[in-house]
């Protein structure tokens, strides 16, 4: 510290001292992110253009075969399913989350915080634990099947686990708070007296919802949808534990390319595609937000 003191006093002008302090503050964090985040990503980009090595790893020869392979219809299924499951999850989260956020935001202040806390607490528990809970409920010897059998409603246990429905359910469960929080943030600032105004002017509830409430909370809807869609499309754990062979998503494909198939370049190409799918809506979102700001 004294050395630092001495050094900062040697810098005469204010400008010099400012620049010195700033670079001291920014350098370590930026360095860490560049070395352990950006460089690894660049290596993945590089690997996606290289030949597959015999025992995992790569051969240093340029090829486009991995991207060509992505065009193979076999992989469209997985890609399409990832997008579909993520879109379904987002839509269902919106359908459940919007009324919830609306209700919470229209409560008196002290109720609001309590209800919001109730929504957030499960989200703090371990992700794996939350997914495992659904295995306990859905599996053949699980809670639902045991209950149905005890009532003699079903002769054989139902196959509730290891399919796309189970995966969607798990995804909704995992990401519902991500939808509710941004929706709540916009609805909290929403002026509820506008509802009365619309009503007095003769608009019915449906019209008020479509013409007033939804447009004014569009920001929250978009933000919430992005926050659900983005992690859902790149999921790997939920389909791995709740899904079966017919409900694998892109994340599972990447995982198997790196661990089972040991085809690192193809896995790299896949994860770059995944990254593009995730970043595209964000860039569009920011571009539109920027245009709105300028307009």
């Amino acid at each position: 510290m004294t050395l630092l003191n001495w050094f900062s006093q040697r810098l005469k002008t204010n400008q010099q001292r400012q620049t010195f302090a700033l670079s001291l503050l920014l350098f370590p964090g930026t360095f860490w992110l560049l070395l352990f985040f950006v460089v690894p990503l660049l290596i993945v980009v590089l690997y996606s253009f290289l030949e597959r090595g015999t025992y995992g790893g790569v051969d240093w020869q340029f090829t486009l075969e991995h991207y060509a392979r992505l065009l193979n219809p076999i992989y469209w299924g997985v890609l399409g399913r990832s997008l579909l499951l993520a879109a379904n999850t987002t839509l269902l989260c919106l359908l459940v989350g919007y009324p919830m956020a609306f209700f919470i935001a229209s409560r008196p202040a002290r109720w609001r915080n309590t209800l919001l806390l109730l929504v957030i607490i499960p989200f703090w528990t371990n992700f794996l634990v939350r997914i495992y809970a659904w295995i306990v409920i859905l599996r053949q010897e699980g809670v639902i099947n045991t209950f149905l059998e005890s009532l003699h409603l079903v002769g054989e246990p139902l196959d509730l686990l290891f399919n796309s429905t189970a995966v969607t359910l798990g995804l909704i469960y995992g990401y519902l708070p991500f939808m509710i929080l941004p929706l709540y943030a916009t609805l909290e600032r929403f002026d509820f007296s506008l509802l009365d105004a619309a009503h007095d002017l003769g608009a019915n509830d449906l019209k008020t919802l479509i013409r007033i409430v939804l447009p004014l909370t569009a920001r929250g809807i978009v933000a919430g949808s992005l926050l659900v869609f983005i992690p859902a499309v790149g999921e790997f754990v939920t389909p791995d534990l709740l899904g079966g062979a017919k409900s694998i998503m892109m994340g599972n494909l990447v995982h198997s390319q790196f661990l089972a198939a040991r085809n690192w370049p193809f896995g790299s190409a896949l994860s770059i595609l995944m990254m593009a799918i995730v970043l595209a809506p964000i860039l569009i979102y920011f571009r539109i937000a920027e245009q709105k700001l300028n307009a």
Partner: peptide, 20 residues
Amino acid sequence: LLFLPIVIPDITMGISLLVF
């Protein structure tokens, strides 16, 4: 740069570190 690690899929970050 700070925003990217938050939005990028976990698995992409995981495999990139493995490769690195």
